[in-house]
Amino acid sequence: MSLAIYMVVMAGVTYLIRMLPFTLMRKKIKSRFFRSFLYYVPYAVLSAMTFPSIFYSTGNVITAAVGTFTALVLAYYKKPLIVVALCAAASALTVALIIKFV
């Protein structure tokens, strides 16, 4: 498998799916079902990508679980993206340091 081909496929497909509808379309999508489907896709994609992968993202399930919990709580209270991300990483790092040195 060639990295160059992967990168061309990624960029090519991502560009075409943006370019073709924006350039060619002149009408709105009427189908309520199809619009509903498209409405849910981003949330379904992000959820499936995050769980359970997030528990393996730090190399240690315990630190990852603490970071995940931190992220869920802060996200529930609608903190900005960067705050959620940094606090999740900071809590995971704190637990990792405790495990290593205590």
Partner: peptide
């Protein structure tokens, strides 16, 4: 490494 996933959660 958890940052990207945490942002998805956010």
């Amino acid at each position: 490494g958890i940052m990207l996933y945490a942002m998805f959660i956010a």
